[in-house]
Write a protein that binds this DNA or RNA. Sequence first.
DNA 1: CTGAAAGCGCTTACAG
DNA 2: CTGAAAGCGCTTACAG
Lengths: 339, 339
Amino acid sequence: MAVTIKDVAKQANVSPATVSRVIADNPRISVKTKVKVREVMKELGYYPNFQARNLVAKNSRTLGVIMENSAALAFQNPFFPEVLRGISTRAHESQYGLYLSTGATQEEIYEEVIEMVQGRRVDGIVLLYSKIGDPVMEYLCQSGLPFAVVGRPYKNPCSVTYVDNDNINTAKETVEYLIGLGHRQIAFVGGATDFVVSLDRLEGYKQALNKHGILFDVAYTVNQEFMQGDKSEAIRRLMALELPPTAIVTHDDMVAYEVIGYLEDLKIQVPEDVSIIGFNNHMISKHLKPPLSTVDISIYDLGLHAAELVVEKITDASVPPKQVVVPSRLIERGSCRRL
Amino acid sequence: MAVTIKDVAKQANVSPATVSRVIADNPRISVKTKVKVREVMKELGYYPNFQARNLVAKNSRTLGVIMENSAALAFQNPFFPEVLRGISTRAHESQYGLYLSTGATQEEIYEEVIEMVQGRRVDGIVLLYSKIGDPVMEYLCQSGLPFAVVGRPYKNPCSVTYVDNDNINTAKETVEYLIGLGHRQIAFVGGATDFVVSLDRLEGYKQALNKHGILFDVAYTVNQEFMQGDKSEAIRRLMALELPPTAIVTHDDMVAYEVIGYLEDLKIQVPEDVSIIGFNNHMISKHLKPPLSTVDISIYDLGLHAAELVVEKITDASVPPKQVVVPSRLIERGSCRRL
DNA sequence: CTGAAAGCGCTTACAG
DNA sequence: CTGAAAGCGCTTACAG
């Protein structure tokens, strides 16, 4: 049997209440008593039982982290580990633990989140994605539990606390960079269309084209869901257009390299024939061939701020919803060329 | 205030004990009562409080997952997300939650683990690494809590439950594959030397050389710590040997590509001048140039089995320590050539 | 088949 | 400065 507060109390000749106060470092307890109790605690190897403590404290000092477990994609992508590292670091600073969702489908996740919240398993939640019509976010909103989203919510963004890049402008500037290099036929390979980040980047892409008098044409866009089918076929189709793209923006570095692979199959060289640009600045991208121009979106900071916001909200329920914009920046390397 | 068992009891005109039994689906409760109580639970939106339930049940239905958060490396590497996906899947099947360590240093992790265990936060633990002289594993051993390690323990492996590849033989076969292609000068770029996996693979490397009458020479080995210094310099030195390697085995695909990058800086081509082989079969490796020959170590299965073993041990404390060997296989692609 | 009571290990007003 | 008592929300022998 584990040693409890009673064992310590008995051994130290004080009441359990006093031991509890020593643990909480209550200033009304004499230094002498504290020293003695702490000695006994060490001697017996006492550690507080979290379940008991949390039950009465009505908190858990735990943050729930909600992510999708389904797609191998979600995991292979460096986004998840890096954002988690940011969350983890910030949580550890404030002595919060991390509880991870394990569900694979949207339904499983939904059920899990409700259990976490209603079951008082977590004090707050970091939602690692923002998608359209997501019941999880809706539930979270009406639950009243502190939470922060990594990514802009689709509906009423002002009432939700979130961290995001300015994806619209980032995408816009990225496309304008290519336009500045003389490109006019620019393709866009985006992520799944139910993610807000995909919509935002597509919007930025459109805005850039529009600003420079280039007509938007869906034929130049490829989305992730489509790519789940036959990716190489999607690229083949793209390059078979009457005016094939001279530049391609992709939503992730690894996807960029995959596209480069398909282009090579078609004897199309990067950057000689086609320029390409990625997102996320994967650690390896600068070492690969060609070194990839990419947008660094500061994934670690996204996680750090999300955790920060949740902890703040837990600590002080009266803070209004906040939105943090994490800067992103274009890193020029060798995968784009001037026309 | 959240709705409790008492609220349900009152509304359903039964005692709290009965409600509790309905939750547990106790067969001694009449169907009629069950139906009524369940109705009320749904009506009031009742969810059990985990803290309370766990306190009396003396378990938490939670698995602790211990990993290192320090190195950006640990996270960028696809190993972590993929092994977590395996763990997550298996845990979810048995309705276990996942609690993640957040510590960055070995000391922080050590403290966290003790708190998790003594504080009854978790019912079992998956340790995601095995390193020499790790106080965490020693503590876990003597704690009596069910745990499983991903990776062979350095000391008394027979008394610890773990999952691993047969790293010695895998490395041996990998090197023999290169020897079979006519290579004699084979370099080895391994991970940090305090990880058992690194030792094992180095051992396999040595065994292969020895078996084929090739003298082992440390000059042909580069370890990760060394590489933390100046990686490109390490490769330069390697290639400046009197008999430079004609083949290089690296412990990770991404490291392999980084090495390839440094080789290219030296105007050395892969596979024309040097053959190279990776580990982990990163999703992107088949798309990159050159397509990388690599050892697929079934990371997902490593996680799946580790979780399986812990759950089994939790369910039945009497099961003896088990060791599961997950198969790995060499995937031949275009980065090696016959001499 | 169901209820009253005790208890899991802790915290926190309330007294003194 | 410290203790006795009540209670957090649940479960589980023990009765009946």
